[in-house]
Lab assay of single mutants.
Amino acid sequence: NNDALSPAIRRLLAEHNLDASAIKGTGVGGRLTREDVEKWLAKA
Rank of each mutant, 00 (worst) to 15 (best):
W40F: 15
E38R: 07
D3Y: 00
K43S: 14
A42P: 09
E15D: 12
W40K: 10
D3V: 09
L12F: 06
G25Y: 00
A14D: 12
A14T: 10
R31V: 13
K39D: 15
T26W: 02
A20L: 11
V37Q: 00
A20Y: 08
A44Q: 13
R34T: 11
A22H: 12
L12K: 05
G27S: 03
G27N: 02
L12W: 06
K43L: 14
S21M: 09
K24E: 12
A42F: 06
G29S: 07
H16F: 06
N1L: 11
L13I: 07
G27V: 02
T33W: 00
D36T: 01
A8M: 08
A44P: 05
V37W: 05
E35L: 09
N2W: 03
A42V: 10
A14S: 11
L13Q: 00
G29M: 07
E38Y: 14
K39Y: 13
A20R: 06
A14N: 10
G25M: 03
W40V: 15
P7W: 01
W40L: 15
L32I: 15
S21Y: 05
G25A: 07
I9E: 04
L13V: 04
S6H: 10
T26P: 02
A4W: 15
V28Y: 05
I23Y: 00
K39H: 13
L5E: 06
A22R: 11
H16C: 07
A4N: 14
G29Q: 07
L13N: 00
K43H: 11
R34P: 11
A44S: 11
V37G: 01
L18H: 03
A14L: 09
G30Q: 04
R31I: 13
I23V: 07
D19A: 06
H16E: 02
L18A: 08
T33C: 03
G25D: 02
G27P: 01
G30A: 04
L12T: 05
D3P: 13
A42K: 14
K24P: 13
N17R: 07
D36G: 00
G27R: 02
I23T: 02
I23R: 02
I23H: 02
S6D: 15
G25Q: 02
E15G: 06
R31D: 05
G29P: 02
A4T: 14
K39E: 15
D19Q: 09
A42C: 07
G27A: 04
N17Y: 08
K39M: 11
A42Q: 14
L32E: 00
L41G: 00
L32P: 05
A14Q: 12
D19L: 09
G25H: 04
E38K: 09
V28Q: 12
L32G: 00
A22E: 14
A22I: 13
T26Q: 04
G27T: 03
L18P: 02
R11H: 13
I23N: 01
A42H: 10
L5H: 06
D19T: 09
S6V: 05
A8W: 05
A8G: 10
N1T: 12
L5T: 06
G27K: 02
L18M: 10
A44N: 13
N2I: 13
K39I: 08
E15L: 10
G30Y: 00
A44D: 10
L13M: 07
T33A: 01
T26I: 04
L12G: 01
R31W: 05
L12A: 06
S21N: 12
A14W: 11
D36V: 01
P7I: 11
N2D: 14
R31Y: 06
S21K: 11
L13F: 05
N1V: 14
L32W: 06
R31P: 03
I9T: 06
G29V: 03
L13W: 01
R11T: 07
R11L: 08
T26L: 05
W40A: 15
A22P: 05
I23E: 01
G27L: 03
R34G: 06
I9R: 01
P7D: 14
R11P: 00
S6R: 05
E35W: 08
P7L: 07
S6K: 05
G29F: 04
G30E: 04
S6Q: 06
G25F: 01
I23G: 02
G25R: 04
P7V: 12
E38L: 15
G30M: 01
L5V: 10
P7G: 09
R34S: 10
G29D: 13
T26Y: 02
A44H: 14
A14I: 10
H16W: 04
S21G: 10
A44R: 05
R11A: 12
V28P: 15
R34V: 15
H16A: 04
R10N: 06
L41C: 04
K43E: 15
L32A: 04
N17M: 08
S6N: 09
W40D: 07
R31H: 08
L5S: 04
S6A: 09
V28G: 06
A20S: 09
A42L: 08
L13P: 00
A14Y: 09
A44W: 15
L12Q: 05
T33P: 00
A20W: 09
P7H: 11
A4M: 14
R31N: 09
L41H: 07
A14R: 09
H16D: 00
W40S: 15
N2R: 12
L18G: 05
R10H: 06
G30D: 04
G29R: 06
L12D: 03
A22K: 14
T33F: 00
L41F: 08
L12Y: 06
S6G: 09
L13A: 04
D3N: 12
A14K: 12
E35H: 07
V37E: 01
V37F: 06
A22D: 13
A44L: 15
W40Q: 15
T26G: 03
L13K: 00
L18I: 15
V28H: 09
T33S: 05
A22F: 12
D3I: 09
G30N: 06
T26N: 05
P7Y: 01
A4Y: 15
L41P: 01
R31Q: 14
I9Y: 05
D36P: 00
K43T: 13
A20H: 08
L5G: 04
A14P: 00
R31S: 12
D36H: 00
R34Y: 15
